[in-house]
Amino acid sequence: MVLQTALLIGLVIFSVLAILLKDLLKSAISLAAASLLLGIIFFRMNAPYAGVFEISVVAGLITVLFILTIALTGGGHDVRESKLVNWVFPLVFVAFIVIDALVMKSLLGKVPALPSGTEAGVFGDVLWKGRTLDLVGQIAVILAGVFAVLALFRKRDKHD
């Protein structure tokens, strides 16, 4: 329980740092640390596949892409933002924590739950046999992403 709480608090702190830090590189690393902690939480909650994907893809691959992009664009500089933005996020965050604490405290005992069993099973079975339509959707999202990159980074015709 203590470890779990520590992991959750760490997750929130690194997530907030990822938003608040002005240095893009530090921000990207905070995000990686947050998803690493999330991956460990997934493992501890008996979701090893989610944990593996979270750590390898989100904490690993995506962080590499972010850092590459920051390096290639000569980033690492501070991002200039208006003063209002500096205040909005902390205020919303504190308000969210307060509402969350109030709501969750009163809800914790009241959440009724049916045993989940129908959709559990071996990972491969669930993915291929249980969620096949989502795989079609996944292919569509990847297609959309590829076409979006092709479209947004295209060479413009001379009459554009």
Binding site: A140, L143, A144, F147, L150
Partner: peptide, 18 residues
């Protein structure tokens, strides 16, 4: 006049499929 029409239609059809 926007150019890259094939790509435009591809995105358009993905949106319709969605």
């Amino acid at each position: 006049h926007y150019g890259a029409k094939a790509n435009y239609y591809a995105l358009y059809l993905v949106m319709v499929a969605g």
